[in-house]
Amino acid sequence: MISRSSPSRFPDELSRQLATAWEDVEYAVTIVALDGRITYANPACTELYGHTLDELTALRFETLFATKADAIFTESDEHSTPRTRQTEVLAVRKDGARFNAHIANSPVLDDAGGLAGHIVIHRDITAEIQARDLLRISAETQSKGANESAAIVKLGWIANSSLNVGEVYDQLAVELRRLVTFDRISVWAVDAQNSSATAVYVRGNDLPGSRLGGSIPVENSIMQTLVLSRSAVVYGDSEKSPRDSYGSAANEVGLKSMLAVPLIANDLVVAIMVLRSRKTDAYSDQDLALVRRAGMQIAGAIANSGLYETVRQEAEHRQGLAEIGRVVSSSPRIEDVYDRFADEVRELIPCDR
Rank of each mutant, 00 (worst) to 15 (best):
C45E: 13
V89H: 00
V328R: 08
G36P: 01
A173T: 08
V92P: 00
S143Y: 05
L64C: 06
A192L: 10
S76I: 12
G247Y: 06
R230F: 15
A271N: 05
R312F: 10
G204L: 08
Y235T: 07
I152R: 01
D237V: 12
H118N: 15
M258W: 01
E309P: 03
I121H: 11
V29R: 05
N164H: 13
A197K: 01
R203V: 05
P43V: 10
V200G: 02
Y308E: 04
V200Y: 03
R184V: 02
D111I: 06
L34V: 05
V311A: 12
I264Y: 06
G166T: 06
L56V: 10
S196P: 02
E167F: 01
V29W: 03
V153D: 00
V253D: 03
I38D: 02
K279E: 11
E55P: 03
E314H: 07
I216Y: 05
T52A: 09
G254T: 09
L348R: 09
L56R: 03
G213Q: 11
A66E: 13
I2V: 11
I121E: 02
V187H: 05
F341C: 10
I152Q: 00
N100F: 06
E335S: 14
P43R: 11
R60Q: 11
N42H: 08
F65H: 11
R203G: 04
Y308H: 14
A189D: 12
L48W: 02
Y49P: 08
L155A: 01
R312N: 12
R203H: 13
K240Q: 13
A301W: 06
S329C: 09
N251Y: 06
A19Q: 06
L155R: 00
T74A: 14
M258Q: 10
P217A: 09
A150T: 01
V291I: 15
H122G: 09
F99K: 05
R326G: 05
F182S: 04
P107L: 11
P217H: 04
D281T: 10
G300Y: 01
S3L: 14
D343S: 14
G213A: 07
A116I: 01
A131R: 07
T87V: 14
T74D: 10
F10W: 04
L90V: 15
A112C: 06
V253N: 09
A289R: 13
V202H: 00
T141F: 13
L179D: 08
E23R: 13
S76Y: 10
H122T: 14
L90S: 09
V190T: 04
T81S: 14
E335N: 15
T30W: 02
F73R: 05
R136L: 15
T67S: 12
S231W: 06
E88S: 07
L275E: 02
E88V: 03
R353K: 13
V274L: 08
D339H: 12
I103T: 05
N164A: 13
I129T: 14
D54L: 03
R4H: 14
A299S: 15
V233F: 10
D285M: 13
D111F: 07
V165I: 15
N105I: 04
V25D: 10
V108C: 03
V29P: 01
T67Y: 05
A265I: 07
A173Y: 02
D110Y: 09
R353E: 09
